[in-house]
Amino acid sequence: MATKHPFPFDSESREVMQSFSKEVSRRLREAQESFVDSNNMQRFTHGRTWQSHQSHDPDGISELTTHKHQISVKFEDVILGRIAVVPNTLNELFQAMHESFVRNLYKTVSDACDQSGNVVNARDGIAKAFIDMLEKVEFSVGRDGSVSLPQIHVGPGGIESIKSNAELNSPEFQALSEEIIKRKSAEALDRESKRKAKFARSDS
């Protein structure tokens, strides 16, 4: 039997916590949109597994990953009226969930690259690795018909070393990378054109 309390405000409290969860979800969704196009975000009500029939491995079955983080609010904070705990807890939960998501995202990308062999080695210098990366990455075409260039994600330390790298800033490197980007963009547009041609009718 549930513990009895004077004026428990049970249903009201449930509504407050539902709003709390919704706010965390809203912030997470906004943050995730900087990594994943909102058009490609999907929402499932049932099932722990899914099969992406449009992927390179249409028979592969993926399993959902659980992200969880526990928050606690101390009785003392409530009794002392430390209302700043509310936004702080909200931020704490959001940050923890977001970090977990980002970690998982990079791990998924890393695992996929390892599996496909799309890995470059920086042993021969960062410029060579950069060029290798451009060669290996398949450029894609967005829904608006323009080529989406690959995004580079590096940590704060890494970005400084890229900025100060003489080889990366040399005219030769710039010319070579531009040539690759131009060629691979053309290849991407050609692929997109062939993809669209598979429709019975196409506007393009």
Binding site: H46, G47, W50, S52, Q54, S55, R195
Partner: peptide, 16 residues
């Protein structure tokens, strides 16, 4: 329903 599979498809990417 936890025990089940979502079969996901995308038009223009496998489905034309």
């Amino acid at each position: 329903i936890a025990n089940g599979r979502n079969h996901v498809f995308q038009i223009g990417h496998g489905v034309w």
